[in-house]
Design a protein around this nucleic acid. Sequence first.
DNA 1: TAAACGTAGTTGACAGTTCACCAAACATCC
DNA 2: GGATGTTTGGTGAACTGTCAACTACGTTTA
Lengths: 157, 157
Amino acid sequence: MGEQEKVRWLTAEEQRAWRGFVRLHERLGGRLGRMLQSESNVSAADFAVLVHLTDTPDGRQRYQDLARALEWEKSRMSHHIARMAGRGMVVREECPEDGRGAFVVITDTGRAAIEAAAPRHVEAVRELFMDHVTPSELRVLAELSERVISKLDEDQA
Amino acid sequence: MGEQEKVRWLTAEEQRAWRGFVRLHERLGGRLGRMLQSESNVSAADFAVLVHLTDTPDGRQRYQDLARALEWEKSRMSHHIARMAGRGMVVREECPEDGRGAFVVITDTGRAAIEAAAPRHVEAVRELFMDHVTPSELRVLAELSERVISKLDEDQA
DNA sequence: TAAACGTAGTTGACAGTTCACCAAACATCC
DNA sequence: GGATGTTTGGTGAACTGTCAACTACGTTTA
């Protein structure tokens, strides 16, 4: 009953890429998040929600749609929106057409928050990332990401 | 007192790459983490700790060094090791040379856990990622990551 | 050697996430 | 109409990570 010897461990090159990739995201994410938090009093999650709300004409989105867009669990959405509502950035609104449903609606406070935060955030993404990556590398990254994500989606089903 | 009009928003290409990158990591991380958790009863964080411990000859590391290697805060390390110790995967050991310090030492239970988890994990990384990326893309990713990380480190100081 | 400073790790309060379950409103099918 | 199943969202408990204060030891300096 020999062990399964067939594990193909990662090569040095593979490890290098994998670790680099993971670490890069952790670092960038951490830095950008702390930056948003300290300079604009908005967490990365808040920011993502606000961006999606301002993407719609009336700043309103169903919980469900927001959750799908951000790829969050509904429960996370519910808790998070409750907290944001507590801080006045959004309000919850009943949905007339569907008695179960509800809308998340951005408030003026929310708009002010994201308008203050966005320029600094984009600038940071440029300074910390874009400025150090060539257009061709960017293209490789985009293609690679999309391909792998679509594979993930495939065998999800 | 005009607004700062000079914000250079991300181009479509840049957004595509940025979002792809962020999403890819979230997705892969989530999937691999759930896999480890459900199949081996080990969280991604546990796994990382165990990997670093088994990298040393006697399966022992100073809290400090472990924290640096994983880029964790010392308090996170302390909390996390306490939890892992509670589950018997590691033990804490005093450090004779430095009265303040302490070692984290992997136990047989811990070894068994990582030995059970590692092959499936590597296989998953292959299936979900490596198999869909060419060697040249991998090289680009590695170089890009290292470059950007080193820039991050630079202006940290 | 005493004061001051730095370092290693701990602790407790707290914010955020997930999990498992719940409930209400729709949808379908007979 | 009523039984059944599905979708939408809410809730409480458990868990994870962060922050700031704290203890205890070590190192430097005067």
